[in-house]
Design a protein around this nucleic acid. Sequence first.
DNA 1: CGACATATTGATCGACTTCAAGTGTAGTGG
DNA 2: CCACTACACTTGAAGTCGATCAATATGTCG
Lengths: 251, 251
Amino acid sequence: MTPKPAADPNAPSLNPLARKLAIYDTLTDREIARLAEAIGGYRDVAAGEDIVGVDQRTVFSTVILEGWAARYKLLPNGRRQITALHIPGDFVDLHSFLLHVMDQGVTALSHCHVAQVPHEALRKITDSEPHLTRLLWMSTLTDGALHREWLAAMGQMPTAAQAAHLVCELYLRLDAVDLVSNAGFAFPMTQVELADTLGVSTVHLNRTVQELRAMKLITWSGGRLTVLDFPRLAKLGQFDPTYLHQRREPR
Amino acid sequence: MTPKPAADPNAPSLNPLARKLAIYDTLTDREIARLAEAIGGYRDVAAGEDIVGVDQRTVFSTVILEGWAARYKLLPNGRRQITALHIPGDFVDLHSFLLHVMDQGVTALSHCHVAQVPHEALRKITDSEPHLTRLLWMSTLTDGALHREWLAAMGQMPTAAQAAHLVCELYLRLDAVDLVSNAGFAFPMTQVELADTLGVSTVHLNRTVQELRAMKLITWSGGRLTVLDFPRLAKLGQFDPTYLHQRREPR
DNA sequence: CGACATATTGATCGACTTCAAGTGTAGTGG
DNA sequence: CCACTACACTTGAAGTCGATCAATATGTCG
């Protein structure tokens, strides 16, 4: 109940977008207000439905308030690669603000409640709020950092390690937005989707999951995943959280 | 404001950085001048040397004027994944402006002549040049688009297709900065480095290269790679240039 | 209860890795 | 000019990982 000072990223009243940006740097009240004003509308998307289509020219970007989503690319050969997983607070397509054309689609992995931010509003922010602009830019940079880390994991680690790495990453990202409880979290993905994320077949993914279970590193059932031994999981996944850049400092 | 005469991206006098940004949108003369002013110094880096070290806190970002570089991650298991290839005009670590800590290193693949841009100068640009800021932001967004494309190629395509895809990408990127001649370009990578890029062993890469040669899609010797049949190469690599976003339009 | 998606298991095959050796090719010094 | 070195490239053989095909649970929801 303190009057106004810096945004407390753990304040439950904070909208998810401001809370996410506050992971990286302190926001002023004015900036929080500017973010709130920028929201043009809300929408609900059913699981399995596209939030943004591929090749689409967009006039707004979308933030997830509740639910999970995935960026994906469909290849001409019919296969699908999921290139990013998005949780509440994430901008699923902030990059479309400047790229204009979506090179990949975004689909809802679970029921999603989202907010839409018109590109016109983003442009105004970039014209008048340099610091907020840098934080928005930063949020796309962390996306890139995750992509690079995924590339390294996919190219150089066996599937079990790659899966362990992903679980560690999700754990910390979800924890940063208070979605971890009792060392676990709601995990709405199917094994098919997870296989498309790691770039392996479902059959092989299934065996990999069972391996992790047998090693007593995780449990996963009924849409909930629990980490039983984070240190060992991190070791198997060669996980170093540096790339998440979850540090609040002047940007 | 009446727009100043547009920068001709093909003007050979244009510095490589401005030429790169001019791929995405027209630059005003003032913006070109601001970019030139931002350069704090020049440096030469020998092949095999690091341009930026991992875990390093940086106070400037580096643009390549001549030569090739690679972002890479060394894993605890001793393996290496190259996550990005950089050619003249590319900012190899613009992301460090806001991320501060390098989560991956950057090494020179060939002798490199580079320019250094102090983060202080970038900050001034973000404070006073919204349009230029958006273009710099954009250049990090295209990096991200490449990462996502690489993820899809690595996860869902056989090695030969993945290699074909990469060659197509490099061809168009190099062409955009006028480094393609006679359907070929100087290609200073070793097979070991290329294997680390595609996430396969050198042995397998070598056989893959021979496959592409046998199919009469490319020649590669003496540090020069020539594309013999772009359409067939693009088809094999399921290559669609959309993700390069090489279109000049208002951003 | 049937209908349908999701998860699990088995068997077979091919892609890719590893280990190991051999073949250029360019540079250095006698 | 040749010997020597260093490095990149090429090839072979054996073995492993992961894909594919196919079938059988298990669950969930109308």
